[in-house]
């Protein structure tokens, strides 16, 4: 059994989910503790009150397009266990990985799930199972070097351990 397997309830989002939706302009200079409350307020108000620790985010193409805003931190703080998207914006992906958030590009993911289904995501192998529907598909697991950043809990944890930052 892979230690990179997470199981949780699915929230579905569309394509082109951008950074400004995750951290709105008015929240950029708020503290990390304050930011999660404003996630998706423009496109899905109230979602932050519904999402539960262990839930899984599923999205369409071009997830995380936009700025350098640390979207991964927000999802980690909201308790999201993994993000699976048809495709990721490169910077969005880096910000998820660097926050220690399991991330998996997976073509066909939007059609394979309805919101509320239970997903089992193995971000080590790329296998995604829809436990509600009994179907399986395989995503494009990130290279091992990148997975190890997630395993270590993100880059800041690594830098702290190595004595570069306080």
């Amino acid at each position: 059994m892979s230690n990179k397997k997470v199981t949780g309830k699915v929230w579905k989002f569309g394509s082109d989910i951008n950074t400004d939706l995750v951290i709105p302009n008015f929240a950029i200079y708020m503290t990390r503790e304050e930011q999660p409350a404003h996630c998706f307020v423009a496109n899905r108000p109230g979602w932050v009150d519904e999402v539960q620790p262990g839930d899984i985010l599923i999205a369409g193409t071009n997830f995380g397009v936009g700025s350098g805003r640390p979207i991964g931190d927000v999802f980690v703080d909201l308790g999201v266990f993994a993000v699976v998207a048809e495709s990721f914006n490169g910077l969005g992906l880096r910000n998820c990985v660097n926050a220690g958030l399991a991330s998996l590009p997976c073509k066909g993911i939007l059609d394979a799930f309805d919101e509320g289904d239970i997903a089992e995501v193995d971000w080590g192998t790329g296998e995604v199972r829809n436990l509600t529907k009994g179907t399986t598909l395989t995503g494009q697991a990130l290279p091992p070097e990148i997975q190890s950043i997630v395993e270590e809990g993100g880059v800041m944890a690594k830098l702290k351990k190595e004595g570069f930052v306080s």
Binding site: S67, G68, R69, P70, G72, D73, G90, L91, R94, N95, N98, A99, E145, I146, G154, V155, M156, K158, L159, F164, V165
Partner: peptide, 19 residues
């Protein structure tokens, strides 16, 4: 050239490398 998030910038400032 490409953009990075805040934590990765910290990493690069400290270590001079990235992937």
């Amino acid at each position: 050239a490409r953009g990075m998030g805040p934590s990765e910038m910290t990493y690069i400032i400290c270590k001079g490398k990235t992937w």
